[in-house]
């Protein structure tokens, strides 16, 4: 998955001569290493100093460059205030990429897991927040974010070869994709959770609309409100805290415009811990079987 980002960045580097890449001593794990080899004059490893990196990116942007900054999502968040005050506040064209997001740093433990980044980025005015699902979508989302002007946050999670979206052009900024339709409820998810959701809908034998929602901000309001009107109940699934992320965004909108039940599935106001990723996901109810149980309960009228 991160490899797809690295390859795309390499290609965009050839295309955009004002694109520069910065990292904080994590060139290899964030997959910007290939870029550093192809374009050493446009690559800056600033060392283990995320706050400095964000400021330097601001300076590049103010000089007409397109800076891409890549680091582990939890440690990028230590520079949240720099992102707020110096980048988002004046809408600088800085492309922020947080890798190893969600529970994907698994065995490293909660210090290295990032369950709050979507909430922290989403609250910032001017910020675009994207959580792509599979390899192709990562490629297309990376390209779309470089093409647009303004600050963006791209969230990359687990590093496996996911491919569940079909078609030539799967990603549209600010647009949800309807992966299947149904009438009992709508399930909204993003990132690597969507394939689990598709399995869960099969297992639960419910008639559900499945909305894959890679863009958390700006949210595809039409898709959410149509779902609320057409199917009633909405279930949101994400590898993030249930506070402030995709589920939060959907719940805010639905409460304002078309109140229906919104059930948020994710990590329930908790930190992670060390362990194999599968077991962590199971513990937090983020595997197909657990999601299926929730869907079946909602269909049966047992809303916990």
């Amino acid at each position: 998955m991160r490899a797809a980002f690295g390859e795309t960045l390499l290609r965009l580097g050839d295309q955009y001569h004002n694109l520069v890449v910065l990292t904080a001593d994590v060139a290899k794990p964030t997959n910007v290493y290939a870029f550093s080899q192809r374009h050493p004059d446009r690559f800056f490893n600033v060392g283990i100093s995320e706050q400095d990196m964000v400021g330097i990116a601001a300076g590049f942007s103010l000089s007409g460059n397109i800076p891409v900054i890549a680091a582990f999502a939890p440690f990028l968040m230590r520079a949240w205030e720099q992102i707020r005050s110096t980048i988002a506040r004046v809408s600088l064209n800085v492309k922020i990429v947080g890798t190893h997001a969600g529970l994907s740093a698994s065995e490293e433990g909660s210090s290295h897991q990032s369950l709050e980044d979507v909430a922290l980025m989403r609250v910032l005015p001017h910020m675009t927040v994207v959580v792509p699902g599979d390899k192709q979508e990562i490629r297309e989302a990376t390209e779309a974010l470089i093409e647009m002007s303004g600050p963006t946050y791209l969230r990359l999670g687990r590093d496996e070869d996911l491919r569940f979206l079909e078609g030539d052009r799967v990603f549209q900024l600010g647009k949800a994709a309807i992966l299947r339709d149904g009438s009992d409820m709508t399930v909204i998810s993003n990132g690597g959770m969507t394939p689990e959701v598709l399995k869960a809908v099969e297992q639960a034998k419910v008639s559900a609309r499945v909305l894959h929602m890679p863009t958390v901000k700006p949210l595809d309001q039409d898709a959410v409100l149509s779902a609320a009107r057409d199917t009633g109940h909405i279930v949101c699934v994400e590898e993030h805290s249930i506070i402030g992320g995709l589920g939060g965004a959907v719940a805010e909108l639905v409460a304002d415009k078309c109140p229906v039940l919104v059930k948020r599935l994710g990590v329930n106001d908790d930190f992670g811990e060390s362990g194999p990723r599968d077991e962590l996901m199971r513990k937090h109810g983020l595997e197909a079987a657990a999601i299926a149980r929730e869907l079946a309960a909602i269909k049966g009228g047992n809303v916990p």
């Binding site: 990196m53 400021g55 601001a58 300076g59 103010l62 000089s63 720099q82």
Partner: peptide, 23 residues
């Protein structure tokens, strides 16, 4: 030339500009 107000960030911004100028 640059936003400020939250302290400590100007040298970093200046580095980005100085490198961009050299480039």
């Amino acid at each position: 030339d640059a936003p400020s107000g939250s302290l400590g960030q100007g040298i970093s911004i200046g580095i980005g500009m100085a490198v961009a100028a050299k480039r």
